[in-house]
């Protein structure tokens, strides 16, 4: 029986994971707007239940800064009267929450069964080639690969809820269905030009 090598979780948590994508997102910073927004979220929950706002705040930070950096974990913990380890537990639980900065355009390729059968698997390799990343760098511990210029990142994800029209991919928040190589070429060309 072989064992897959898995790095120690504690070390993974502590590691700073630089990404070329960082130049496209503002670095995390506690601004008055952020504090204001956080207050708004917390006010949505009954008093003493600040803990419930952890997830919305995680989304808030990720949306703006691309990922959840260690500093933001500390800030969320403090804001929600939680602890860093609790926030980290949530961050590490959801695959949709990133601990490394994505590229400016983040591509999610569905690899759940319907899409995989209709060509999603091959498409993943193709897109990797297209945006210049090595698919082998996508592991359990670090499922996302970022291109050197920081423009692109890619990740295999579970069902995008559009199974009848696979293979499906998503670029940032836009869904593209019935993909093939030509469509990928066109999309990559289009997005490369986008500001």
């Amino acid at each position: 029986m072989t064992m897959t090598e898995q790095p120690d979780v504690i070390e993974v948590l502590a590691e700073a994971k630089p990404s070329p994508g960082e130049k496209y997102y503002p670095p995390f910073e506690v601004t008055p707007e952020l504090t204001e927004k956080a207050k708004e979220y917390i006010a949505m929950y009954p008093e003493g239940k600040e803990l419930s706002a952890v997830l919305p705040l995680i989304h808030l930070v990720q949306e703006k800064h691309g990922f959840i950096c260690p500093q933001s974990v500390l800030w969320i913990a403090e804001t929600c009267r939680s602890t860093p380890i609790h926030v980290q537990g949530i961050v590490s639980f959801y695959p949709g929450i990133r601990t490394r900065c994505p590229g400016k355009w983040h591509i999610r390729v569905c690899h759940t069964i319907a899409c995989a059968l209709s060509g999603g698997e091959e498409l993943l390799t193709y897109i990797c080639e297209k945006i210049g990343v090595d698919p082998k760098t996508m592991t359990d511990a670090e499922p996302m690969a970022v291109s050197e210029d920081g423009l692109w990142s890619i990740e295999a994800v579970e069902c995008l809820a559009n199974c009848g029209f696979g293979p499906n991919i998503m670029i940032n928040d836009t869904l593209y269905s019935q993909m093939d190589r030509a469509k990928v070429d066109a999309l990559v060309a289009e997005y490369s030009k986008k500001a």
């Binding site: 898995q6 602890t83 609790h86 980290q88 537990g89 695959p95």
Partner: peptide, 14 residues
Amino acid sequence: GVVGRGGHNAIACY
């Protein structure tokens, strides 16, 4: 706390 998910769940300190 507990970090990770599924088979990768583990106890950890921050």
